[in-house]
């Protein structure tokens, strides 16, 4: 406990906690929708796209990597989420294609044009997250806070529309809801969340952050509202616990958070069984 209080004196620890909690909150909000729409793996796919874009940005020497990463990820998200019932490549295959394609491309670019001597180290950092959450600058924190607030506000504003779209997109479209427009909003929000979350857990573990809280909540609750709220709470608690444990024990931040999420899922599964 003393150790924790001591650590809390450092601003970088406080920043890490703030950013971690916010990202966990945001990623859990859309998790329910993504899981139900059979897009559990979109987090993985998009984060690899972001990884590829980041590699290109690093090589071309862009000062602000976000300028390239964010638009590219948003475009990929829109393409993937377009009502894919009639498309030639089905959802899971499309995600897999984009995912491995972008990953390979990013690694290739990094390897061929890299300026750093430790390429595999760099790659490992991007994939599994780094200690970078502990080296956040104040501006990063502000950016993250602003984007997170935007995501939460957008989510609340579009909550009923997201529900209608997730439950039955064709019905919504047939009765005159502008589904394309809202799909666009959802895709943008997802892309923003993923680019944000890459800093925290790295691109490989983003899927975990998106789907575990949603799955845990779905085990216990039966209405969409309850599931959404519960998944946000689980996600925030898991991120908080994960970060504190990782600081105290010196474990990697990303994987510790995911480990806590897995434990939370097991507990929720148990509670769900008892309830039934």
């Amino acid at each position: 406990m003393d150790k924790l209080i001591m650590y809390m004196q450092y601003p970088f620890v406080r920043y890490a906690l703030i950013v971690g909690v916010l990202i966990a909150l945001c990623s859990s909000l859309l998790g329910v929708t993504l899981v139900l729409k059979r897009f559990s793996f979109i987090g993985d796919g998009l984060s690899h796209v972001a990884f590829g874009a980041m590699a290109v940005a690093a090589v071309t020497g862009l000062s602000n990597k976000m300028l390239l990463t964010l638009p590219v990820t948003i475009i990929s998200a829109i393409l993937l989420l377009k009502n894919n019932e009639n498309s030639k490549v089905k959802g899971d295959a499309a995600v897999a294609m984009i995912s491995v394609g972008a990953l390979a491309f990013g690694y290739l670019v990094m390897n061929v044009f890299s300026t750093s001597s430790n390429v595999s180290g760099d790659v490992c950092t991007t994939l599994f997250g780094s200690t970078s959450i502990l080296t956040l600058a104040e501006t990063d924190v502000y950016l993250c806070v602003i984007l997170s607030i935007a995501v939460v506000v957008l989510f609340i504003f579009f909550y009923n529309k997201i529900f209608a779209l997730t439950f039955d997109e064709n019905f919504a479209k047939a009765t005159g809801v502008k589904t394309e427009k809202y799909n666009f909003v959802v895709a943008t929000v997802i892309a923003v969340i993923i680019v944000l979350a890459m800093n925290l857990v790295g691109s490989l573990l983003i899927s975990a952050l998106i789907i575990f809280p949603a799955l845990s909540a779905m085990k216990m609750f039966k209405s969409f509202k309850a599931v959404t709220i519960c998944s946000a709470i689980i996600s925030v608690l898991a991120a908080l616990t994960g970060i504190i444990v990782s600081i105290l024990m010196g474990t990697p931040v990303g994987s510790t958070i995911v480990a806590v999420d897995v434990v939370a899922f097991a507990i929720c599964h148990g509670i769900g069984m008892v309830k039934r």
């Binding site: 009923n160 529309k161 529900f163 209608a164 997730t166 439950f167 039955d168 047939a174 809801v177 779905m218």
Partner: peptide, 29 residues
């Protein structure tokens, strides 16, 4: 103005939603 009763989709089989939430979503248009 055509209300529509679709055949069930696989997504709906494990969808956590209350009856009230679903009926209300009909007003979305």
């Amino acid at each position: 103005d055509i209300g529509y009763l679709p055949q069930q989709t696989p997504v709906q089989k494990d969808f956590p939603a209350s009856v009230y939430e679903i009926v209300l979503s009909g007003f979305q248009n």
